[in-house]
């Protein structure tokens, strides 16, 4: 069961990002930042890691002149997170 405990979700920030994206269709950078109470650089590097794992997908667009980056969980990411949750619950039951 431990093999399902996903190291990619070990950090509080990555765990938080995934939790938010699981229950929201999408979230933009500033929303994630204020929910998780982290700095820009810190959040960006964790998002990058999740993106590289193909757990989240990024889309960039402009609202007026301001760039706006939104994040979505991929089906692959959803599955990985669900397995991680199951692993957590099993670990707690032991």
């Amino acid at each position: 069961m431990l093999e399902n405990y996903n190291k990619a979700f070990e950090s509080r920030i990555r765990l938080g990002v995934m939790s938010v994206l699981m229950v929201n269709e999408s979230a933009d950078f500033s929303t994630l930042k204020s929910l998780l109470e982290v700095t820009d650089g810190n959040l960006a590097s964790h998002l990058k890691a999740l993106e590289e794992n193909e757990y989240v997908e990024v889309s960039k667009q402009f609202i007026g002149r301001k760039p706006n980056t939104t994040y979505k969980v991929t089906p692959f990411g959803r599955k990985a997170f669900e397995e991680h949750l199951k692993a957590l619950e099993t670990l707690l039951k032991k």
Binding site: R12, L15, G16, S19, V20, M22, V23, L35, L36, L85, L88, E89, L92
Partner: peptide, 8 residues
């Protein structure tokens, strides 16, 4: 788990 719940 608490953190996940609270974020959701």
């Amino acid at each position: 788990l608490k953190e996940i719940r609270s974020m959701m």
